[in-house]
Amino acid sequence: MSTPTDPATGDAPHAPHAPVVLDASDAALSTGSVARHLGVSPTTLRSWERRYAIGPAHREPGRHRRWTPPDIARLELMCRLTAQGVPPSEAARTARAATRAAVDEGPEPGPPAAPARGAAPGGSHALPLGEVRPECRGLARAAVRLDAPAVARLLDSALAGLGLVTAWEEVLAPTLHAVGRKWASAGERYVEVEHLLSWQVSAALSRIRPAEERPRTRPLLLACAPGEQHSLPVEALAAALGERGLPVRMFGADLPPGALHTAVRRTGPQAVVLWSQRRDTADEALVRSVADLGWGPRGARGHPVLLLAGPGWGSRAAARVPRTDRLFGLRSGLALIESLAAGGPPATGAARAAPAACGS
């Protein structure tokens, strides 16, 4: 569940994205730097350039690709659109058209004086959020102030007013990603902001009361891969499934392989969602071993559907293992899991139909 995924590579950038804030005087960035900003691999960016003509606007012969702020803004828009379920080719066309329109319009007459280099609305401590909901900006300001009570109130208000899925996609995830980008670009600064915000998001999700579990419904097992500490997207999924009365067995971060095997055998789940944020925690051998697990009497053995979530999984990980598929977003992932719980067919690529943001 992450966030939009390129069909050619399977990489999933964190989304919804906020534009990377770069001053006009900043040097153009390398492909590797832009890939880290977006949470994708350099291979994905090169694939997008080749397939959808969304590479750097200017490239000198014999030189490496260098991405300017308008190039990065175009990529950010494409990521946001694919996060909403727009096909990559259509998202690329829209992003290119929007860039052309911005260039054609030019600056409005009489603009105010440009801020100093590195300045941002709200001062040097403001988070680079881009075009987001007002709730997102208020949450970011409270997080930067380390105002935990205000963060808690704003999170509860967003979840109650917008609903969990919309609040996650349009408020919680964009703010978390903005904090992560600020931290990545500022060395060790803002780590305390990320920790406070992450803790408060986790606490807010835990305050959502689940509905009564549906009778005669096999449970859904949710866990992070061994070594994986990024559990917030799985916590959001667990809370959303609980709201719908689906029985969830949540095991959180860094579940050891043996414990995962035992949990599957003991619960006989309808599906197992296994989250991996990073490539080094995405263990395909573990995927195969879980997919092969069974329970019940001989001749009537049951097997779980295994759903791989998060940007750590490669593009072919699910295709190589039976009864295994990918989740690319909270909204589309919920739809697929509800279909399975209702007795629908095993995963066959349906999760790819509407990628949406879930990653953190």
Rank of each mutant, 00 (worst) to 15 (best):
A318E: 06
R265E: 11
R352K: 03
L139Y: 08
P311E: 05
G299V: 06
W183M: 01
R218I: 01
G349R: 07
T175C: 15
G161T: 12
A97I: 02
R218D: 01
A263I: 08
W199Q: 14
P247T: 02
A92D: 09
A225Q: 03
A142W: 04
R320P: 00
V21A: 07
L222T: 11
T31V: 07
L29P: 01
P16F: 09
P13A: 15
L81Q: 13
R301L: 13
S30I: 00
L45D: 12
A350T: 04
T3R: 10
A97L: 10
P87H: 11
D292T: 06
A12K: 05
E228D: 14
A184M: 06
A150K: 11
P257C: 07
R117I: 04
R326G: 04
A83V: 09
D283A: 09
S332A: 15
A204W: 01
T267S: 15
D11P: 00
P311S: 11
P16L: 15
T217E: 02
P346R: 14
V201S: 08
P215Q: 02
P322W: 02
V144F: 01
L307N: 05
E169P: 08
R50H: 15
A263V: 08
S315Q: 14
V248Y: 11
A282E: 09
R66H: 03
G227C: 08
M1K: 00
P4R: 06
F328K: 01
A143M: 09
V34C: 09
P256A: 06
P4Y: 04
A73K: 08
L293P: 05
G343D: 05
P346S: 12
P13N: 09
G268T: 09
L307M: 13
S124I: 01
W313Y: 13
L164T: 12
A83K: 10
P304N: 07
L45I: 10
A158Y: 11
W295T: 12
